[in-house]
Write a protein that binds this DNA or RNA. Structure first.
Lengths: 195, 195
DNA sequence: CAGCTATTAGAATTCCAAATCTAGAATGCA
DNA sequence: TGCATTCTAGATTTGGAATTCTAATAGCTG
């Protein structure tokens, strides 16, 4: 069955995640990824066809972790107030998954995906659309009255918390009281849909 | 006094702004900037020492244009409600200066400044700090009661609108009704500091 | 144990864009 | 007119990073 692998796929992706969070996708080099994983460059290329493929996997892994938590909150929401709790996933995620948060919230999605193979881009697009669909579902369920409810809810649950954590990342961990401010702002953003 | 210049500094910076807004700083090459300005590469290097210097000038020019409008609103504000109008400068700016808005709101500041000469970085830092100082002044003037007023106000005036326009840029122009949503969210973000 | 194969390993190569270099052109001034 | 000066012009060089290539290894299998 051939020589056993010293490195798992996840080892290499995790190394990519750390380097990319620290330096950004453009400054990330394969030599740095390899050094971070304590692997030679050739071994990395044996698994992944290009730098673009690695960056894409790193983004997808972080996005999947975020999406899982975000959608879990939203899927169960029976009331608008419960749905608005999803806005707090962003600061929470940034706090307990720092590298992932930096990748998702301070770098540009496109800079991780533009050079990715077709297949990776599709999986990335799926991560994105699953989140957006969940928001759209919640809007239909809880805000059916307002035709612009979907846009306002995505602003409240995604745009506003994103802007909030951006004030702190990557250097500062979002402070504990940020959640309350986000909660109030998110509620205000959808207030016009509630009567 | 020597041969007259075919290109002004501003021609070259404007070309840089357009290319960088379209492709991002990393994908921007000197050959593309030169082509956009209809100038040869050598002429560009005659004026600017490096690609980093050009990108920095492009960022600074956009930031100065934004800062001018933002600070003008804030400096005159006598009430909190007037100060909150500054939150609307972000979507307005994104609408009537598309390239500048894309540079400031969808790309990373660091990607424009990391390779800049010391002197450019200083001017960039000054643009940033002038805006932050104006926010701090307004907080002291209008929200002196709350010790965290400064943080909440900068969140309301900068972070939230930033997150909001990010939902649309670079492809979609922020819709007209975005201002009202931002205004309500911004007000909610500082609500806990009033009376 | 001999051969098989997936993997490690890093040196060599290729590629691309930044930056340099040298020449030529256009203007003002003595 | 000739000289100094400033800028245009693009071919050439250089440097760095992505990718490829060729061996060397290490377990597995018959």
């Amino acid at each position: 069955m051939g020589r056993p692998a010293r490195f798992t796929d996840h080892d290499l992706i995790a190394a990519t995640t750390r380097v990319a969070a620290r330096l950004g996708p453009a400054q990330t080099t394969l030599a740095l990824i390899a050094k971070e994983a304590r692997a030679p460059v050739g071994s990395v290329y044996h698994r992944y066809p290009s730098k673009g493929a690695l960056l894409a996997e790193a983004w997808i892994e972080s996005a999947a972790a975020f999406g899982l938590r975000f959608r879990a909150v939203l899927a169960q929401a029976k009331t608008i107030d419960q749905a608005l709790q999803a806005a707090l996933v962003t600061p929470q995620f940034a706090r307990d998954n720092h590298a992932g948060g930096v990748i998702l919230f301070t770098h540009r999605r496109d800079d991780f995906l533009d050079d990715a193979p077709e297949e990776s881009r599709n999986r990335a697009a799926q991560q994105t659309s699953e989140v957006l669909h969940e928001v759209a579902d919640a809007a239909k369920r809880l805000l059916s009255t307002d035709p612009r409810g979907r846009d306002k809810l995505s602003l409240a649950l995604i745009g506003l918390p994103y802007g909030a954590v951006r004030m702190f990342l990557p250097h500062v961990v979002p402070p504990a009281d940020l959640e309350s401010v986000i909660a109030e702002a998110a509620r205000a953003a959808v207030a016009s849909c509630i009567h």
